[in-house]
Design a binder for these strands. Sequence first.
DNA 1: AAAATAGTGTCTATTAGACAGTATGCC
DNA 2: GGCATACTGTCTAATAGACACTATTTT
Lengths: 220, 220
Amino acid sequence: MVDVAVDLVVLTIRGGELCTLLIRRGVAPHKGRWALPGGFVLADEDLAAAAGRELREETGVASVAGHLEQLRTYGAPRRDPRGRVVSVAYLALLPDLPVPTAGSDAAVAHWRPAHTATRLAFDHDTILRDGIERASAKLEYTSLAAAFCPPEFTIAELRAVYEAVWGTDLDPRNFHRKATTTDGFVKATGRRRAQAAGRPAELFQRGDAEVLYPPLLRPR
Amino acid sequence: MVDVAVDLVVLTIRGGELCTLLIRRGVAPHKGRWALPGGFVLADEDLAAAAGRELREETGVASVAGHLEQLRTYGAPRRDPRGRVVSVAYLALLPDLPVPTAGSDAAVAHWRPAHTATRLAFDHDTILRDGIERASAKLEYTSLAAAFCPPEFTIAELRAVYEAVWGTDLDPRNFHRKATTTDGFVKATGRRRAQAAGRPAELFQRGDAEVLYPPLLRPR
DNA sequence: AAAATAGTGTCTATTAGACAGTATGCC
DNA sequence: GGCATACTGTCTAATAGACACTATTTT
């Protein structure tokens, strides 16, 4: 008999950088260390429901926008000094929210750059790494990048998602062509949005396709 | 507090068909139904170790050849009528073995066609479906197809893996070119193997690359 | 007009898909 | 020789990457 927890890798794009939600632990073990948000699964609760509940409690997000999927399960016998805890990690992708750190929990959540976040509690370094790698891979062959964007977004915003997650620059012209011609990726709204300067960009919504074919591969 | 189990989606190619290892349950619940092999994780046992142990017990395979990876965790509150059981599913890919059903367990394992296997115990229909989908997807962008083959194999055998898993025919000439020119996919041994008829095929080993770039995409 | 950002068009290299043709074995 | 399978070469269409150029806004 073991305890089952869910841990959350919550990713968003803030200021052109991939960020993850971390909480500072107020109690032992690993008191004072940064950790992924999470908690124990309730007696009669589904795993995905527990992940959604923790996400709401930590971020205040209804999670209607964005995306939540199971990442991987971590169950090394001594990963938690309190005893045997098997943790089912979930990956959440969210648009940059106006209320990112409003936690009803005692511990307040903070956004931290995801690529450099390290020395986390438990095995959360590994879980975070796995989450970033999953997100990077899924941007290639799914339309999931739009989960980082508000309901209506410009092609430049969509490109910024790829650039932040992959840590590379992409050619704006070629990206525009790929995004707008790949079937089901984005849907034109006809509306436009004015920037600080320059020609106003057309606004798009997420398309119907889950899978991009052909995929949008990372440059090697 | 819940029980944690591992369930195994064990896949191989037999007679040009994708097959999965199933056991007939001898005890309630779901007595007499077909089910994925699996069992409970021991008190101080790592999840991957438990999966490897179950694989050995059910198949007698040392699992040195082949491939074993975590698939996904299934934890719906009422998925097991005995109580709360969270199951961490693993996916194993094996070459067609001379001793496939030698089980030291009371229940004997049998190979069954994977694509048509259905009406399994618990939520094992879903787990098997997810395992097949994972294998199909990973053939596209990894060199994992070789895990289905013996240490030395012909390009035709490698192609048969793709055709069995994807359920499609591939052009032998184009596949040969793709397999032999994609960096790190296969390594020539210089040896040949005589068939029943026709020119003997060159024997290859698995290459160093984990990831295929560019990928070998399923036809749509 | 200058600057800035959005978007289109064009050229080239690479790759996938179709398939003719050649190589090398067994009967 | 006939047949079967392995392998190579060639043509064409689609796609990615590089980048010139046009469009539409603010200052």
